[in-house]
């Protein structure tokens, strides 16, 4: 039975990796200048200096890396949070992290911090906003040394509301060109010219995946409820604290680099749960891979569907993700 399970897991991972590989090739080849698949090896080996080489390395590849890591990070954060709150409606943005980040960016745009700091001001202000919210949610819900998960959720939702109202207020009193850039940032984009930020995104998301694996069995036990998990010898307090920090770092990083990309963190975990079940040992990695692939596909669509214009990727993830999810849910009798 054990071998069968492991075999199934490997099969699943193999399939997902193949799918991801195909998606990556697709993402590299499509764009305003189409590069045929068979030319890619040649460009890689002796294409240095050509236009295609620079398109590949300075436009397509960074964008692909970013899509993969943000997609992976958001769905991983979704799995972790849904698992720890035992609530299927929780997603990375429920905790108010996105609200804090957008408030930060909004302030940056209105007060023109970017004039002083340069482009880095956007992710920096977003990240500061996210960290601030994380600190508030964490410290309020820490009572007598234990983390009250329901309080945490409510506080997060409230902070979300407060910050989005403040963002609206700021938008209402801002100039129209500021308004445009705020809206564009909020809708999310994977266009990130800064290579360092791309590298940070890749590192953080992979580190998050590795760290969360230390808690995969704890998450399995938490599915039975906190008391049961304690009875199984799980250090629930420590686990919840670590998971919260991992998930919020992943989310904060994603939001500050790529803006608010909705739905990935909500839908991909549910989707994967239908296929691989509740066991977090396989769920974590498969959600990560599937999220990476999903966001990459959405990004390809968002750049090609109305080319040469580009749609915000968050719009595509919402529409495609939502429609696919409803379809699958109506076809398959599953309980969430």
């Amino acid at each position: 039975m054990k071998n069968r399970k492991v075999k199934n897991w490997f099969l699943m991972l193999l399939l997902l990796s193949l799918f991801l590989l195909m998606v990556c090739v697709l993402a590299i080849c499509t764009g305003s200048a189409g590069i045929p698949v068979q030319k890619i090896p040649e460009i890689l080996i002796n294409g240095k200096g050509t236009v295609e080489h620079s398109i590949l390395f300075s436009i397509r590849l960074p964008r692909l890396m970013l899509a993969l890591s943000i997609g992976g990070a958001l769905s991983l954060a979704g799995v972790l949070l849904q698992g720890m709150f035992r609530n299927p409606l929780v997603e990375p943005y429920t905790l108010g992290i996105s609200g804090g980040a957008s408030l930060g960016v909004c302030l940056n745009i209105i007060f023109k911090w970017y004039v002083v700091l340069g482009v880095i001001a956007y992710p920096l202000s977003g990240f500061l906003g996210a960290v601030l919210v994380i600190a508030i949610v964490y410290s309020i819900s820490m009572k007598k040394g234990d983390l009250k998960t329901n309080n945490m959720l409510l506080i997060g939702v409230m902070i979300s509301f407060v910050s989005s109202s403040v963002v609206m207020l700021l938008m209402a009193i801002s100039h129209s060109e500021d308004l445009h850039s705020i809206i564009f940032w909020i809708m999310g984009s994977l266009d990130e010219p800064n290579m360092i930020l791309v590298k940070i995104a890749v590192t953080v998301s992979i580190a998050g995946l590795i760290l969360s694996y230390f808690f995969c069995l704890d998450l399995n036990a938490l599915a039975l409820g906190e008391e049961e998990a304690i009875h199984l010898g799980i250090q629930t307090e420590r686990t919840k604290r670590c998971l919260f920090i991992i998930a919020s770092t992943l989310t904060g990083m994603s939001v500050s680099v790529a803006g608010i990309i909705m739905f990935v963190g909500l839908i991909v975990p549910h989707f994967m749960r239908m296929f691989v079940g509740q066991d977090h040992r396989i769920l974590l990695i498969s959600s990560f891979l599937a999220g990476a692939a999903f966001l990459t596909v959405c990004d390809v669509i968002s750049r090609t569907i109305v080319a040469p214009l580009e749609l915000p990727v968050g719009v595509i993830t919402g529409i495609i993700g939502g429609v696919i999810f409803i379809y699958v849910l109506s076809r398959k009798q599953v309980l969430l």
């Binding site: 599915a223 409820g225 199984l232 010898g233 799980i234 509740q278 066991d279």
Partner: peptide, 19 residues
């Protein structure tokens, strides 16, 4: 009351080995 979790009975029982 036992949480009606989305896992098979066997997976559930195996959780007892976690300690």
């Amino acid at each position: 009351a036992v949480e009606p979790a989305m896992m098979t009975v066997q997976e559930y029982i195996l959780l007892g080995r976690l300690p």
